[in-house]
Nucleic acid binder design. Structure first.
Lengths: 201, 201
DNA sequence: TTGCATATTTGCACGCGGTGCAGATATGTC
DNA sequence: GACATATCTGCACCGCGTGCAAATATGCAA
């Protein structure tokens, strides 16, 4: 019952096995999705491939979609951290832009594109993805307001957050459609420039 | 076999019955959703209340969510029409703003609020709603580009469309949260003003 | 009116995702 | 080794959604 221990200790067999199983399910599922598509893959397929019972899948993931979408789970914290690193006197829109471009670099690997394509091509996943973006919007709005010491529901902060996340979504889509090797942040920068130009006119 | 008839003729018994049944299902479903919630209402409940078989529901609506979400179906056309009415020399952002506020007036009644709340409070509906917003984004971007004689994938048009739809979404949310009787367009106007101010800084 | 082509409705069987429950099994601890 | 606890599993069940074929209703022409 003594829980007074540091976070750097050894995880113990239980947690290690749990992490293993989690990863095994995740990996097996993504492989199957990539090969035969999301809808065509049943939970039984995944369970068998991962070596667990179908029932156990729900002890690790809330739903079939969640197996894919949980990959992006840490994004909220990343954005908040990136905002907290910005100087407080920076204008709102620039703050949002720089926080996002800072963060974008951390979140891309060789598999990112395949994952993004899977989500983009699967309506059910796309819908869930949008829900995550909305979460991001709210967290970004709150983070921006906090960093600039504005009230938490400040209208400008919310509008800027909505706009910035919209640009992020758009840049991701453009990046996915393009076949060059440029990262999403390049497209994001261009989009922000276009937005400023449009607002000036 | 002679289909050479005007559009102002009588619909015939078949189409009339079909429209009737469609409306009856829609109405019965919304009543049940309002009373006991979306998830707690089964398709059997709706079928019985509407006096049809469960199987027939799918001849009128693609899915359970669709019964609710199809209410907003005509929005795309409304937006395109509103954009087409704007002067071609109007700046992009103003064009989007005015098109949306023009349209907003047409799309609110006493039930609009209840419907919006149902969607807002039901995760499954909210996800589907976001998908519709994305459709709107693309149609708005294309309409703006066409009206200003830009290429269909023009970056500025897309960014402005994404931003404007984001503002629309935000304004709807604010309107839903507020208890005053002001229409959504008031909140939309304020949001656009805040956006311009933020972009100027 | 009768008869025929076509559209609509219905019932049935089935697959799949998701949940509650209870027993079996594994882990951590004394 | 014994006990408390966390995890895994199988089972039964519900609800949404679909394919199919039979039954029913409508439109139309003779």
């Amino acid at each position: 019952m003594q829980e007074v221990q540091t976070a750097t200790e050894q995880p113990g067999l239980r947690e290690r096995k749990r992490a293993d199983t989690h990863a095994r399910i995740h990996q097996a599922a993504l492989a199957l999705f990539a090969r035969q598509g999301f809808e065509a893959t049943t939970l039984d397929d995944i369970a068998i491939a991962a070596g667990v019972s179908r029932r156990s899948l729900f002890h690790y993931f809330g739903s079939k979609e969640d197996i894919v979408l949980s990959t992006k789970a840490g994004l909220g914290e990343l954005i908040e951290a990136a905002v907290a690193r910005r100087p407080a006197d920076e204008p709102l829109l620039a703050m949002a832009e720089h926080a996002l471009t800072d963060m974008a670099g951390d979140f891309q690997g060789p598999e990112a594109r395949a994952l993004a394509r899977l989500i983009h091509d699967t309506p059910a996943l796309k819908a869930g993805d949008h829900a995550k973006y909305e979460m991001l919007e709210h967290r970004l709005a709150a983070a921006l307001a906090a960093q600039k010491r504005l009230p938490p529901d400040d209208l400008q902060a919310r509008v800027v957050a909505t706009t910035a996340i919209g640009v992020l979504r758009m840049a991701t889509e453009t990046w996915l459609a393009s076949d060059d090797d440029a990262g999403p942040e390049v497209h994001g920068k261009a989009a922000f420039m276009a937005l400023r130009a449009a607002a000036k006119a």
